[in-house]
Amino acid sequence: MAPSKKKHATSQPCIIPGGFAVLSIQFSPDSVARHSLYVKEHKVRAEKTSGRPLDRTLFVLNIPPYCSEVDVKQLFSQFGDVQSVELRDHPGSSHESGPRLSKFFRPAEKQGFKVGYIVFKKPSSLPAVKSHPHDVPLVISTKQHPVKTGVEKWIQQYTESFIQPEKLQQIVDSFMEDYDKRKQQEEERQKAEANQQQEDEEGWVKVTRGHKGAKARPHSEAANQRALQKEMRKKKRKELMNFYTWQHRNTQKEHIAELRKKFEEDKQRIALLRAQRKFRPY
């Protein structure tokens, strides 16, 4: 029988429901087992101004535990220059509100499959990833970039856990400088808002109109403080009025009690006079 000329390799991308493209990976070139990654373009409107631009960010699911951010960056660099890689335990918004902590001050990472956000330098890298054939696996560990596992990985992690005091001091100083800078910027912002919302002699507050499309800004700390002081003064006046009302009622009660006492005394005096008089017409 003549051999079949039909090719088993489709050389076509595999798209599953949800818009995810399936990428096949294997640990080494001689590895038989394969693993599947599910990728799609990251589209979240709430993160337009974050570090995940909508036209250059790739969302990846089912990343193996032995893959670090460096390994993922090396794996996807064949589709284009990678700007940044972020691995997380669960999908979520990026953490840009605070300074990035060093690995020595972060909690221990959970061992398990992760999700990733890969930011490319060019938007053309996203179609290249999604159009990659499903039957052509990507190799993680190569001769140029070997990935350590097992005892070798544990020894490497144990060795990297030690840090020189000079390097640790440098990390702490850098963190404190960034913290002081952020604190100074926050104080300047609060001061600017306080000056902008400062009341004049008649109690008016000058309000300026922001640029078109700007969202309403929340009350500043100074405005909240003034509102709190105003409520405290109102509460004190109310307590004072309540005290005066209570004092007036107490005075009335005492006056009524005195009148009743005097009335009883007068009744006893009249009864005594009636008993003492000699002329009794009835």
Score class of each variant (00 low, 15 high):
K215A: 12
R182L: 04
N242D: 06
H219F: 14
Q185K: 14
Q268G: 02
E264P: 01
Q184A: 15
N224D: 06
I171R: 01
Y244I: 12
R182V: 01
F243Y: 14
K235P: 00
H219A: 10
E221D: 07
K234C: 08
R233V: 04
T251L: 06
Q196V: 08
S174D: 05
M232Q: 13
M176C: 09
E186L: 13
G213K: 02
Q190P: 00
H255K: 15
W246E: 14
E201D: 09
Q225S: 14
Y179N: 01
Q170V: 13
H211I: 10
G213P: 00
K212Y: 10
Q185M: 14
M176S: 07
Q268Y: 00
A223W: 03
Q225G: 11
V207D: 03
K181H: 12
Q252N: 06
D173F: 04
K238L: 10
K234S: 14
A214W: 05
F175E: 01
Y179Q: 05
T245A: 14
A257E: 03
K206F: 12
R189P: 00
V207T: 05
R189F: 09
M176W: 08
Q185T: 13
L228M: 15
Q229M: 10
E221S: 06
E231F: 10
N224R: 12
K261W: 07
M241D: 11
E177R: 09
H219Q: 11
A257K: 02
D178L: 04
N195I: 10
K262N: 05
E264W: 09
E202Q: 10
F263R: 15
D178R: 06
Q252K: 11
T251D: 08
I256K: 10
K183W: 06
E187T: 15
I171K: 01
Q247N: 09
E265M: 04
K267P: 00
Y179F: 07
M241A: 15
E254S: 11
K212R: 10
E186D: 08
N195A: 15
